[in-house]
């Protein structure tokens, strides 16, 4: 059974004649425990897909099914305990006036978790922060530590699907490695399904099994990471993208 099925998804912004489509007729299917990557250049609509799934964009059409349950205009409480999101910029995704403890306990309170104290301690251990960070404010944390807090927040409700919106692009490479390792560990520990957006093929290749290449709001090609490594792409755009990211290293 698949964790997430999206069919004929269209997302637009603006009204009337100014309506501009950010995503056009996108369909894909993510199996339980799979890691699916969305790749494309800026403005290709990859982040918009994640936001539409999360319910942050109201203007969409098509069907989205999570765990056999079709999604409506409004998301149910049960949806939020199943699907969570990690944002790109850890400097913008934490409330500047709230301590780590406050952030996590509010989330748990919203989901009706009992035993908040021990859960927070365990969650912080899970993301490799330890209890020393519990009462710190965001400005007392580094970028990598903030992103760990954001991951902890996403995990607090015990979701099965995590939407990752370029979770490492604002971080240094060495910190990026730590976060990617953490994501790999968490996935196996918590049986998570990932849907990850990135412009970095190396990052997507490290974490995902299958990727969709996007251009101008539509899927150009869906291919396995193994195929991508062998550079066996059918579409010329995908090949161009692959070549440029390999060239910039060599």
């Amino acid at each position: 059974m698949s964790a997430l099925t999206v069919s004929d998804l269209n997302v637009w912004f603006g009204v009337g004649a100014e309506r501009a489509y950010a995503v056009r007729d996108v369909s894909f299917d993510v199996a339980k425990g799979e890691s699916f990557g969305l790749v494309g250049e800026s403005g290709s609509g990859k982040s918009t897909i994640l936001r539409a799934i999360a319910g942050l964009v109201p203007t969409w059409s098509g069907t989205m099914v999570v765990d056999g349950e079709p999604l409506g205009r409004r998301r149910s409480k049960a949806f939020y305990s199943k699907v969570q999101m990690v944002f790109q910029d850890p400097y913008a995704s934490l409330h500047p006036r709230q301590t780590v403890d406050r952030v996590l306990s509010e989330v748990m309170h919203l989901h009706g978790v009992k035993d908040i104290n021990t859960r927070i301690a365990r969650l912080l251990d899970d993301v490799g922060l330890g209890s020393g960070f519990r009462f710190r404010y965001p400005h007392q944390l580094s970028g990598g530590q903030r992103q760990r807090v954001a991951i902890a927040r996403a995990l607090a409700s015990g979701p099965s699907i995590l939407l990752l919106d370029e979770p490492t692009s604002a971080l240094d490479v060495s910190v990026q490695a730590e976060i990617l390792n953490l994501l790999v560990d968490l996935r196996s520990e918590h049986d998570l399904t990932y849907i990850m957006v990135s412009h970095d093929l190396g990052v997507v290749g490290h974490l995902c099994e299958r990727i969709a290449v996007m251009q101008q709001g539509a899927f150009e090609e869906v291919l396995s990471v193994a195929d991508m490594r062998r550079l066996e792409a059918k579409s010329p755009y995908t090949r161009h993208l692959l070549e440029s990211s390999i060239k910039s290293i060599r």
Partner: peptide
């Protein structure tokens, strides 16, 4: 429109809580 408000929305927080607490 900042991400931390999106994040708390994704936890199912209602408008009253978002406005008063965040």
């Amino acid at each position: 429109n900042s991400d931390f408000i999106h994040a708390i929305k994704l936890q199912g927080a209602g408008p009253f809580r978002i406005v008063t607490r965040h």
